[in-house]
Amino acid sequence: MANLNTNIGSLQLKNPVMTASGTFGYGIEFEDVVDLSAIGGIIVKGTTFQPRQGNDYPRMVETPSGMLNCVGLQNKGVQYFCETIYPKIRNIDTEMIVNVSGSSPEDYARCASCINDLEDIHAIELNISCPNVHDGGMAFGVTTEGAASVVRAVRKAYNKTLIVKLSPNVTDIVSIAKAVETEGADSVSLINTLMGTAIDIEKRRRMLSIGTGGLSGPCVKPVALRMVYQVAKAVSIPVIGLGGISSATDAIEFIMAGASAIEIGTANFVDPSITAKVAQGINEWLDAHNIASVRDIIGVAE
């Protein structure tokens, strides 16, 4: 049994496999079909200060090796999370991390501040990269100034581990990563979904309710892996890699590219028990190669 422990700032994970926000609910939705304690960390649904209804249906289109979605951050707001959801998930035997979204730096900070008070939540992931809402989200994540402004505001309101999730829909993701590192982020996670669209040729119109959506699944993996490699080389904070991971091999690729941990997203829809299998698969690979710790392969790819 190899040592699978990994660190994201001061946060220690029992293994590097986490779930990507919006693909695993609050974890409890999956408890019948996967051992939640076998997962390194669960990043729950995007949470905003105010409740959000999300976008209209249709919100998804299947694409070759993936899917587009435009859910639009449907959630019942941070107060509901703290009062109703948190008591149900605080004792799950893994790190529970809340994904936080907003429409202004102050809005993000208010939401983060509420979660700062929850003793069993040791980290948040800041979503500055949601492509599916008009009033914020990705708008902040696509400029260094926008990204920095959100992290600056949240850093003042939140004193535990702060992960910032980056958008791939930018010219230079490295500059954004450096900007959030400068503002005090403890880690960056990448990539969020790639903006795309799909057209129904019989109806002659775009298939998603808001026209565009975020692309995820195995089809985005090469792009994500390249960006993780570039960012990991450029920053000194830990990087969390995600984008199309659906096997232990995929996960190890991201770790070798420089990720200290990985997130599994869309693959949860195809195999709801994939997270535990990937964690086990990483362990088996390390054992087979006589490598004592997963930390020994972080960033080893030339």
């Binding site: 919006g22 695993f24 609910g25 999956f30 649904k45 209804q53 999300g54 249906y57 919100r59 829809f269």
Partner: peptide, 27 residues
């Protein structure tokens, strides 16, 4: 039979407008 991805109430893709707001058809 709204289009859905996860079937477990996680992805929030299959929502239907109801008197309670958008809810997942799968759950």
């Amino acid at each position: 039979e709204n289009m859905m991805a996860c079937g477990l109430g996680a992805c929030l893709c299959c929502v239907e407008k109801t008197v309670r707001g958008n809810v997942c058809v799968c759950t």
